[in-house]
Nucleic acid binder design. Sequence first.
DNA 1: ATGAAAGCGCTAACAG
DNA 2: CTGTTAGCGCTTTCAT
Lengths: 332, 332
Amino acid sequence: MGPSARAASDRDLFADGLRDQGVGELGYRPNATAVALRTHRSQVLGLLIRNLHNPFFLDVVDGFDGACAAAGYEVMIGSSRYDPSREWELLHAFQDRGVDGLAVAPIGTGPAVGDWAEDYRCPLVLLNAPPPQAGAAVMSVRGVGAAAVAQAVRHLVELGDRELTLVVAPADKDPEPERPERFRALARESGFAARVVETEPGLDAAREAVGRVSAEPPSRRPTAFLTNSDHLAQAVYLAAADLGWRVPEDLSVVGHDDLPTAALLAPPLTTLRVDRREIGRRAATLLIDSLEGRPPARRDVVVRVDLRVRQSSSPADIANSQDRKPELPCRN
Amino acid sequence: MGPSARAASDRDLFADGLRDQGVGELGYRPNATAVALRTHRSQVLGLLIRNLHNPFFLDVVDGFDGACAAAGYEVMIGSSRYDPSREWELLHAFQDRGVDGLAVAPIGTGPAVGDWAEDYRCPLVLLNAPPPQAGAAVMSVRGVGAAAVAQAVRHLVELGDRELTLVVAPADKDPEPERPERFRALARESGFAARVVETEPGLDAAREAVGRVSAEPPSRRPTAFLTNSDHLAQAVYLAAADLGWRVPEDLSVVGHDDLPTAALLAPPLTTLRVDRREIGRRAATLLIDSLEGRPPARRDVVVRVDLRVRQSSSPADIANSQDRKPELPCRN
DNA sequence: ATGAAAGCGCTAACAG
DNA sequence: CTGTTAGCGCTTTCAT
């Protein structure tokens, strides 16, 4: 083989297989499956979401993926769609595939997840759910649910609202039962009327549920709705429109999550801002740290939640006097 | 071991390992890693998204996951974050992990993806991008981009708009260059003024870009914006507010995607509705069919896109006369 | 130091 | 038809 032939072959080799690799590197890539079989480490983390349809989880996934990428892990994802049997199935599918760690946004408080963790010992973190008292090995990442409720309630009470209604998912699907509890406790302390309405996930179901509680006699008519998500707050908007009620003149609404669209709704939605990407990132970091022998200081990471006051909770005179220039939603 | 001891042990076994399994079933689950190594089939499909931050992809992921679940596949996900080198990296990471098939929402028209497909022969489907003429093995699933533009343009021209501006991602990041081309061709045919503005992804960048084109002399002032996504349409709303322009009185806006929030914006957004879940589902089905020896009839699946007219594109008198009752956004 | 061998948990191909 | 064996591609251990 002459020198020119060699040069051509080198060029081809480069174009084909070595594209982004440094000169001199061999184009060898170990077979990750074989490595996993041999070492019992797959370098894959599982992410099991209860409802991938909720935009809340988009950024969670994004943050999780980002942290995994930085540490050389891949992520396997699955949605349980609020179906406990599918959750159970996915848990085992991930186990069979040998995930090194798992983050779960559980259905309800996730008893199935706890049971599963008993027999497959791998780092596990619950998203937006308190850690089960039993399994000390289980970690969690979540917003400060109870304090967030208190913050929103204080705001509304200051505005003069006395008939508050909290909209949440049914108890068996809600990973944070402490929220309605705290809400009722606050009512007892502060002397406002507290009502809790449970609704199946889904805009239509929620819209209807909200409509139902709103049909109270005038004296007990709700003047403010708090929801567990901006998603549900949208249902409240729709229900209000159905009834011909104006927000915020006739009804205050406070959401939860501060999705990018919250600021663009009509009227812009007052909501509890939580850094969704951070939740995903912290969950991944917790898993990776445990896996790499850096036991995390806190097993229960609580991320800040703060109230962003917009026009959906301002009495009319305040709303009208405010600068209406739309503010930026959270950084894109 | 007496009978009572046996009974107790059976019960424990049931509680521990056999939970949801039929009586008599052995609690055996094959190790998927070993199976994959042996059979060269992982039962895992890859899903590589260019920007997981865009809500568009949420439902795509959901549909993809759903179809995979039904067929017994798991899904490995990754986000390239508009970074070509990370896209290249993920492509290989998926390859190393032995994914059986891969769906990619590519950055730009995805030349890297094409190159990669050459050396790792597995079913590949491009999301929202035309199939490269080269690789006959590459499939694709997408909305009917060009026809959608035509539909929106016709609508606006009928409303009297003559200064139309299309907002798209920069050419190197846009997987559908045919869209601006079609837009310009339509302008030549129909005699309206066509301007195309490119913007980096991100609400702030887009807002600023839109503001810039809007600073034209009155005679050439844009009267309508078409965007490539509802995401970008939101940027147009923000820019309009910056300028003190009212939508739709001063400016028509037409989005693309019909995200759940489109109907809730102020004013409700006219947009091109596309079934995002269907895109994910079809992509997975295409891959699974090829893998299981059912070669799909069409390698280039095109899903319907239809115009949903709302208030952001109606002239004031029409807008005011319309029933303002908010309509339901797409299911759930 | 470098090299050979065993084996991770399975399936495919083979022999009895 | 049932039972045995080789080997997927690697890492780890053990012997040189």
